[in-house]
Design a protein around this nucleic acid. Structure first.
Lengths: 168, 168
DNA sequence: TGAATATACTAGGACATCCAATGGTTGGGC
DNA sequence: GCCCAACCATTGGATGTCCTAGTATATTCA
């Protein structure tokens, strides 16, 4: 987004917090802000890799989820729960994927309320190739030390469990 | 967003990656996905805390940045660089903050291209009270172990430096 | 000095997310 | 057997982010 700054803006914010009498919460504030910024950087990389495939991250996630579904199809509310996004976001993503010929909607055989989504052949092919691209361009060189990757998975896993994402 | 899942969806995705021959990138994939989800959870908490103040996180960040500016004013391009967002996002945020009477725009005294933004009295008051709310409701109980907070700051700081956010 | 280049902000469009409200569909309790 | 609460998907509205273009101002250099 521009040239590197001479100093870390988050470290600067942390100093500001400490100087204003909020030293007790300065470190968590810095950690949370750093997560926000890291997500932004990673998302930009992912979107840039997916762009040639005509996909956004939201649509890719749905495509990938469907490609792993045993039956090849998934109810929309199930997708919403697994991807942890609002149902309307799924509706939006399916609208666009369907218009692009990558998924199909079909009524649930026994429950008239739910809609099933299923990959088309083109969708399955694109899921494969875009995943290969993400693996090669993003996940294989994420910018973390290998040891830090395990730390992150543990720390964030614990956080998500405490936040009520899952039990276990 | 719903009831807790019985299993961690990210751990599940990691297993899927390993089962499909991508074991070498499964762990970074899981870490990156966890960062995405963690950011989503934290952002929701922050937005919920800021809602009573009529602020969003984007507008709050700008307000907080201005409240720490020595001169009390900041060029828009400077704000864009420090918050690491696109210049048009700053324009958008300033539009709304200005309409709410929280900031003012004024022309730069010597450079006719740049616009300065400055807190109004109401803006300064709101910056204080909303920061107090965030400190009390989010940063004081972030959901991380104290030791993990330092780990995160170090790991993510290193990542951001490698990504070109800042030098040093 | 005058033209080419660089910088700063804004306007309009595409996309994603959430919330609130709507219209069907199910299924349990009486 | 019926009714109402719960559930599912969609629509419309608000916000935010980025991108591309366009306009205006500065700076550089021939």
């Amino acid at each position: 987004m521009g040239t590197p700054l001479s100093r870390d803006p988050i470290a600067e914010a942390r100093r500001n917090w400490e100087d204003h009498g909020w030293a007790d919460v300065a470190a968590p504030m810095a950690a949370i802000t750093a997560i926000m910024r890291t997500q932004q950087i990673l998302l930009a990389r992912i979107e840039s890799t997916l762009k040639p495939f005509g996909l956004t991250f939201a649509r890719y996630e749905l495509l990938a989820l469907l490609s792993f579904a045993r039956k090849g199809s998934l109810p929309m509310n199930k997708a919403s729960a697994l991807l942890q996004v609002h149902p309307t976001s799924i509706t939006n993503a399916v609208d666009r994927l369907e218009r692009a010929g990558l998924v199909d909607r079909s009524p649930h055989p026994t429950d008239g309320r739910t809609t099933l989504i299923e990959l088309t052949t083109a969708g399955r092919t694109l899921a494969k190739s875009s995943t290969a691209a993400l693996n090669a361009e993003v996940f294989s060189a994420p910018g973390f030390d290998p040891g830090d990757v395990d730390h992150l998975i543990r720390i964030l896993g614990s956080f998500r469990r405490n936040a009520g994402d899952f039990e276990e």
